[in-house]
Structures are given as C-alpha cells and as structure tokens.
Nucleic acid binder design. Sequence first.
RNA 1: CGGGACAUAGUUCAGCUUGGUAGAACAUCUGCUUUGGGAGCAGAGGGGCGCAGGUUCAAAUCCUGUUGUCCCGACCA
Length: 570
Amino acid sequence: MRATQLYAPTLRESPAEAELVSHKLMFRAGLIRKAAGGLYSYLPLGWRTMKKIMQIIREEMDFAGGQEIMMPIVQPAEIWQESGRWAVYGDEMMRLKDRHGREFALGPTHEEMITTLIRDEVRSYKQLPLMLYQIQNKYRDEIRPRFGLMRSREFVMKDLYSFDRDVDGMNISYRKMYDAYSRVFERCGLKFRAVEADNGAIGGGHSHEFTVLAPSGESSIAYCENCNFAASDEKAELKIIKSAPEDLKPLEKVKTPACHTIELVKNFLNVPIEKTIKAVAFMDDDERLILAFVRGDHEVNEIKVLNSVENANHLYMADEKLIKAANSCPGFMSPIGISDAIIVVDQTVMEMCNAVAGANEIDAHFINVTPKRDFDAEKIIISDIRMVQAGDPCPHCGKSLKMTRGIEVGQVFTLGKKYSAALNAKFLDEDGKEKVFEMGCYGIGVGRTMAAAIEQNNDADGIIWNKNIAPFEVVVVPVNAKDASQLEFAEKIYDELKIAGVDVLLDDRKERAGVKFKDCDLIGYPLRVTISPKTLESGNIEVKIRKTGEFLNFSRENCVSQIVELLKSL
RNA sequence: CGGGACAUAGUUCAGCUUGGUAGAACAUCUGCUUUGGGAGCAGAGGGGCGCAGGUUCAAAUCCUGUUGUCCCGACCA
C-alpha cells in the first residue's frame, strides 16, 4: 500500500469531547470518525486493525472447535417474547416495526436467535458438542454512550454459543473458550486478567471477565499477586474478619447530638472506625425497606445485598418516610428495636463486640453493641455484603489483595439451561430421553479490544501498536519523495519486504520529512525504515523501533531478512 | 432519568456581557522557496453562527421553545 493512495486523515488536534487517550488517538490518527452519539465509522487504518483482531479471533475460535456462521441483525419480537426478555430488556434494545407493523429488534445479543435455530436443527446427542460463532454488529441503546469505542451503541462483537449434552460437557466447552480467550488477548499484546465476575442479567452459572489493565478502565477489580485470584469488585467474595476477643460490656444508649454520619459519631465518642456499625437503607420495587449493615470502614456492595434478599429485583435508595415508618430515623438506624424491615448484616459485623451502632432515635447511639448477643438472629439475614477494598485478605490464599482498574474486553458465561429451557430446545440423548441443551455464551468486543490496546500502549507522540494488530507492520519512508533516487530505492525495499510477506506501507507522499515522521509516530507502526541521502551514501538503511525509539542500521544486502527477524522478536 | 455545561469554517476556538450583518489558528487549493521531526512567503476557496419562533429599523449576540453533544450521578456485556 502506498500512502498517496491511503485515506488516512491525521489531525493535530483532537475533538473537545474526547476524554480518553485511546479515543483522542483513534481520532487523531485517522482510525475512526463519529457519525452520531455512540456511532462510529471505521476508516482504513482503523478497519485494518479491526480485521487483524478479527482474524486472530477467528483462528483461535476455529482452533478451539468453533464454526463461523452469520445470523440476522434484525430479529423478530416473537423469539424475545418467548424467552421473556422482550419486556425485561427495556430501553436498551433498539426496536423497530416493518411496514406491516410487525415488531423487530436490532440484536443486542443472540441467545434467542441461536437457540431457536438449533432447536429446529439439532436432534441428536451425536451432533454435540457444538460451538457456533459470528462476528457482527451489535446494538445497545446505551443510556450514556461515551469514551469512543469503549461504550458505543453499535459495536462489533464476536459471540460464540456452545451446546452440550450435560454439565460436564458444558464445563469442557467453557474451559476451551477460557483458554482461547487467553490466547486471543495474548496475541493482541495486551496485559489482562481473567477475573471472576457476576453473571448479571444474563444469568446462569459461572463467569469470567477478561479485563485489560488500564487506570482509565470503567471496571474495578481486586487481584492477588500471590495466587491467581482476580475478581470484579462487585463479585469478590470476602472472608469473615475476626476481631480480637474482649470482655463483653452491657448494651447502653448514649446521646450523640447531630452525629448523623459515621465520621461524626466516631469523633464524638472517640472510638476507632472499626468499632462502628454503619447502615445503608434501600428499598425494592415493592417498597420494602431493606437495611444493610457493615462495619464503619467498609462499603456496602449493593449487588451482594440484592442477591441476599429473596424476591428483590432492583434496589433504590430508601425514602425517608419508609425509614420513619419502620420506627427508625435516617442517620441513626439500627437493627436493634426496628420493626418492619428486612435486615441484612455483613458477616464481619457479626464478629464485632462492644461496637457503636444507631439507636433508631434522633441524636442517640448504642454503645457496647455485640451483634451475636444483641441482634435478633431470627429476623436478620447474615451474609457477605461488603465491597472489597485494597488490603482485604485474598479469599484463596489469605494474602493482601490489591485493586486496579480495567477495561472489560471479553466475557465467558455458562448459561446452563436458562435459554434452552425457556425456548424448549431439546435433543434426544443416548438413553433415548429428550434432554435440554446445556449452553454457554462467550463474547469479545472487537472495537473495545482495539481501544484497550491503544489505552495500554501509547506515549506523548501517539499509538504504539503490537505488530500483530498494527494497521501496517512496517512503514518505508523516503525522507524526500521528490528525490527520484530516494523514491526508487524506497520502492525496491518496499517491494522486497512485500515479497517477504511483510505488511508494509510506502510513505511516498511529497511531504516534508517532519510531517511524515510525526504521522508515523502518531499512527504507531512498529517499525520505520528511513531512506535518505545519508543512508543512500552509506549503503545502509535505518530502522527505528517505535516502542523503544531505538535506531538500528542494517546493510542493504540483508536488510529485508533482518527486518523480518526484528519483527518476529518484537 | 436528575444535576451541570456547550452548540459559530473540515478541526480547535474567539466574537455574545454593551445587537449594526462574522474572525484566528490548523487543515484545503495555487505559485515560488525549503527538504531528517507537523517549514517560509504570496494568494485563493470555504461558514451566516444547531433548528423553530419572538422582540427590534437591525439578532451568533436578547427572550421562548426544541434538537443534538459532552461531563457528573443513577443504570449497564
């Protein structure tokens, strides 16, 4: 490819709306352009990288036993109604009607589509296991699209679905995908972690998120450097923290004027924050009051609270009226002496003794609270409901956990029978009985992977591509393309590199050297070969490594093989 | 959906307070010079100020509505 024929509009400035480095660089380097909120066009350079990532994904999916298919983006409402998700999915689903008024949706995901396809086609256990995937645009009408390709309304996704005859088979498929995903992200040159995750709305069994480590990421993860444990902050299971044994003192109510926050109470009573119990009030869709109690220095994990309360779908911050109706008052809530509320107490709170908690009346707290003695065990739910914090003990090995942020680029789920049962997808097993498929689903955000790669690998000058996903591996730059001898020489090198199988760009633009160098750095080709009067005279060529800034001189005779070797070593 | 901000040339932004009929830089085009890190000089094209009303002799500038965008929050593979 020649730069004079390449549509690669680079810019000196980035749009005001771009916040993330990756978003700015994708824009400036001419990879993408915005069409509307959360909708982007991929320009040639961006699309080249997208295609390379997709190719890596295809190779790994095929290697793991997957087969590529293509399903419609436009999906009939009926299958979504059948699975029950037509109503549940809500505004995030882009819906449309055809000329006859029939309802459709632009696929946000394809569990319904693939399950209805398979239930009509696969009748025997002999056809299993089956892994089918596609790479296609997905549509989610996000409440707030942002960060360029990180959270867009239309995005390219690889989605694979596995069908197995039993749970063991499903777990094998899951493991294959887990391994395949690790290889995909390794080949893309990303630093990532497979973290234990909450299944969220999709439901089913276990799940891992593949998270690229980056401080700007939207998800927060806890990980252990000692063992392999990593989990999203919402999911991370925590062990009980035992307190040192003390002589129990009798429960006592004390005045705490205007101490409606933990900070004020702890200062007023002069107790360490670890000796206080904090309350957070929620309500659910049925306006049931749910009070969650954690240690003063801990934070409530809303998801864990939700999971520990039966028949609750959503949690909202509670109305003050609701709290008062339960004979309590905001700022001084307590499990002791409250009526008509669901009480959820963190497991670590149950280990505390002689602690401070609210007294359910204005300007008063209890001291010497010992939950095991003072809480009504019949009426409370004891569970792990707190948010993980840096320094918490690792649930696997007990060492101190660290926190980091990351970008979720892929997720693997076991679904079990969730969709196959809802959509009545069955096959005939060896024993002659009809059984429901055990399913799994596995997604990779292709655009997000590209964005994450940039987010993780860039400097002040621009992008630093890994060779496997760079739009071009090598760029050949004649310093002055108006000089026929330089251009001619550059063309020769370019031809030879092409023949050697290198993905190479010739920057034959009649621009000044500075302009071309700036563009090379901005776009981030891994290697730059420079041809100049200097190199012509010496008979050498100059190679610059983008990542290190290092210059190498190769002799004319074997420069092509040396460049090929250098590329391999990157 | 709540809170905040913005909308003027391809891009980044100035001009609005104090209405008088739009400007800079970068980008683009032409010519000359220059050629190892976003060059210099000369010249040219390009917008009627998100949209719709209103006030006024006169509206990017004031008022009302509306749409879009961005940020924070809630929400969310």
